[in-house]
Amino acid sequence: MSVATLLALSLLAGGLFFFIAGTLGLLRFPDQLCRIHALTKADNVGLGLLSGSLALLSGSWAVALKLLLIWLLVMAAGATVAQLVAASHQAGREGDRD
């Protein structure tokens, strides 16, 4: 096994760890804001590690560039959606108080 494959596999394992941690957070954390916090942070890192690993395994610069672009887009979309979910949660709570 070459060094690149070994590195790719360890990145893959690291990515999976972050995804599992994020999912555990989603399932076990007490309230909505904590869950979003766990999910977005862990999944962004997890997806980055997975993309890095797949880019190494593909061995092509074009594929690596596309994977990088996908990671950046998912991070931007994920951050926005997390903010929107949190904002609607906040709006719902303020609505309850009224």
């Binding site: 887009l73 931007a76 926005t80 904002a87 609607s88 709006a91």
Partner: peptide, 16 residues
């Protein structure tokens, strides 16, 4: 528009 429509959403849309 969306019920929660923030500046963050607007800048994402501008970017995308």
């Amino acid at each position: 528009p969306a019920p929660v429509c923030s500046e963050v959403l607007r800048s994402l849309v501008r970017l995308l």
